[in-house]
Design a binder for these strands. Structure first.
Length: 422
DNA sequence: TCTGGGGTCCTAGGACCC
DNA sequence: TCTGGGGTCCTAGGACCC
C-alpha cells in the first residue's frame, strides 16, 4: 500500500505561543529573539512583511520595529515546550504512528486512514486551533521529503487553507516546480549553490537530474536519498522512539564581555552542571568533555578561540568530577588580555550508566556519587533549578549572565504568573 | 552597546593491526 | 631500484536541521 505521510508544522511557533496569552496582539507583528536577545528566531507573517529576516540581529532593526509597533519577546522556552506538549498530545489522537520531529513539527503516518485525507487533516488543524490555540499547516504526500514540500506550499498559499495533499501527478509537478532547491529539506546553502552551478534551480529539476553518480559524488548519499524521496521512493522511515543523545552541549554567549578567569570559571561550571544534569536525565555516563572559549568574532578586537578536551579514566556523570576537569582544561586554555564572549562545555562518549567501566582505583566512591547526584536532582526538580548547586557556579549578579529583557511571564509553569482574567 | 543554542549524519584521513 | 592489502576504529571538519 502506498504510504501517506503528513507533516504538521506550527505556524511561527514561538510567536504563536506568545500570542496565545496576548490576544490583544492578534494583528500586531510579533518577533521572538534568541538567547541574550541576540537575533530573531521566530517571526509572524506581519513581521516578515516588514522585511525582517530569520536570524536578523535585533539591534540592526530595532528602530524599524519601534516605528512599526512590533511586539518583541525574549525567548521563553519553558512556555514553548509546554505548549508543544499539548499540540503533540492532540496529534496522537489522530494517527497511530507519530514522530515528534522538533518542538513545532511532527510527522504522522496516515496510511490506511479511510475517507478524504485532506478533509481529515483539516479536522486535525481545526482541533489543534480550538483545543490548544496554535495555528498549524499540514502537508501530505507519500514520503517525508515530499510532505515537507507540501507543507511549505500550504503555508505560503492562503487559499489552500493551511492543508495540501500531493494526491495527483499534477499537484506534485506543480509543487516541485514552485519549490526552489534551497527550500528542499536537506539541501542547505552550500548544496544549493552547487546545484545552481549545474543549472538546477527548482525541486523538479533536481528530481529529474539524470546523473546520479554525480549527485552521489558531490552531495554524498544524503543528496541521493533526498532525490529518491522527491521521486516518491521512501528512504526515511518515521522514527518514533526517542533516542538518547550522543553528545550534549551547553553553551551561552555572555551578556557582557568577560576578561577574568574567575568569571569564565563560573560560567563553565554552570554549563558543566547543566550538561551533567541532562546526562543523568537520560541515565547515561560520558567518557570525555571538551571546553571551548572564544572572543566575539563580530567585534573588531583581538580574537582568540581555544578548545581542548579531557578523557576520563572511567565514565562518569558526577557534576563535581565534570566541573573539576572542565576547570582544569579551562585553566590551560585561558589567556589574559582577551575579551571573552562565549563559553561552551561539550560532553561526548556517551553510553548507558549501567555499562560503566569501573576503574581499579576510583570505584570505591561510585555508589556514594550516584546517591548524591540522585538526591540533588530530586531536590532541584521539586524545589526549582539550582536550589542545590556547586559553589563553583558562583552567586547572583554575574556579569556573564545572559540578557533577557523582554521575557513574557511563565504563564503555564509558575503559579505566580498565571494569566489573570478580570 | 548590540549577531543563539543544540543537535545529527557523513566522509576523509590517520593510526593501528595482521 | 624495488616497499602489499585489507580491515577497524577514531577524530576532525563539513553540511545540514530546527
Amino acid at each position: 500500500m502506498e504510504k501517506v505521510i503528513a507533516l504538521v508544522d506550527c505556524n511561527s511557533f514561538y510567536c504563536s505561543c506568545e500570542r496565545l496569552f496576548r490576544p490583544d496582539l492578534l494583528k500586531t507583528p510579533i518577533g521572538v529573539l534568541s538567547n541574550n536577545d541576540g537575533c530573531f528566531v521566530s517571526r509572524t507573517n506581519e513581521l516578515k512583511a516588514l522585511g525582517v529576516k530569520m536570524g536578523e540581529p535585533y539591534f540592526k532593526v530595532k528602530e524599524l520595529c519601534e516605528k512599526n509597533n512590533v511586539a518583541v519577546f525574549s525567548a521563553n522556552f519553558s512556555l514553548y515546550t509546554n505548549i508543544s506538549d499539548r499540540v503533540m498530545r492532540t496529534l496522537i489522537n489522530f494517527a497511530p504512528i507519530v514522530e515528534v520531529y522538533s518542538v513545532d513539527e511532527a510527522f504522522l503516518d496516515l496510511t490506511g486512514i479511510q475517507g478524504n485525507i485532506e478533509e481529515y487533516c483539516r479536522e486535525i488543524r481545526e482541533t489543534i486551533l480550538r483545543n490548544v490555540g496554535i495555528p498549524v499547516s499540514i502537508g501530505i504526500a507519500n514520503t517525508k521529503t515530499l510532505s515537507k514540500v507540501a507543507n511549505k506550499i500550504a503555508k505560503n498559499y492562503d487559499k489552500l487553507g493551511g492543508v495540501l495533499h500531493l494526491s495527483s501527478r499534477e499537484r506534485i509537478e506543480w509543487s516541485l516546480e514552485k519549490t526552489k532547491v534551497e527550500d528542499i529539506w536537506g539541501i542547505g546553502r552550500r548544496s544549493s549553490e552547487k546545484l545552481n552551478g549545474l543549472g538546477v534551480y527548482n525541486a523538479k529539476q533536481f528530481r529529474d537530474y539524470k546523473n546520479e553518480r554525480q549527485i552521489q559524488k558531490i552531495f554524498t548519499k544524503v543528496g541521493r536519498r533526498t532525490q529518491d524521496e522527491l521521486k516518491g521512493k521512501t528512504c526515511l522511515e518515521l522514527n518514533t522512539v526517542v533516542e538518547k543523545k550522543k553528545e550534549i552541549i551547553s553553551s551561552r554567549t555572555f551578556g557582557a564581555p568577560v576578561f577574568d578567569l574567575k568569571s569564565l570559571r563560573e560560567s563553565i561550571a554552570n554549563y558543566a552542571t547543566l550538561a551533567s544534569e541532562k546526562l543523568r536525565l537520560q541515565d547515561s555516563v560520558c567518557a570525555s568533555i571538551e571546553v571551548v572559549v572564544r572572543t566575539n568574532p563580530y567585534k573588531n578586537v583581538s580574537q582568540y578561540y581555544a578548545a581542548k578536551g579531557h578523557r576520563f579514566n572511567c565514565h562518569t556523570n558526577d557534576t563535581r568530577t565534570i566541573i573539576k576537569y572542565a576547570w582544569r582544561v579551562l585553566d590551560e586554555l585561558f589567556q589574559q588580555g582577551f575579551e571573552y564572549k562565549k563559553g561552551m562545555v561539550r560532553i561526548s562518549g556517551i553510553r548507558d550508566g549501567d555499562q560503566c567501566q569501573l576503574s581499579l582505583f576510583e570505584n570505591s566512591n561510585i555508589d556514594k556519587s550516584k546517591k548524591l547526584m540522585e538526591v540533588i536532582d530530586r531536590i532541584n526538580r521539586r524545589e526549582g533549578p539550582q536550589t542545590i548547586k556547586s559553589m563553583a557556579c558562583g552567586v547572583d549578579n554575574r556579569a556573564w549572565k545572559m540578557r533577557q529583557d523582554m521575557k513574557s511571564p511563565r504563564y503555564v509553569t509558575g503559579w505566580n504568573n498565571l494569566k489573570k482574567c478580570y
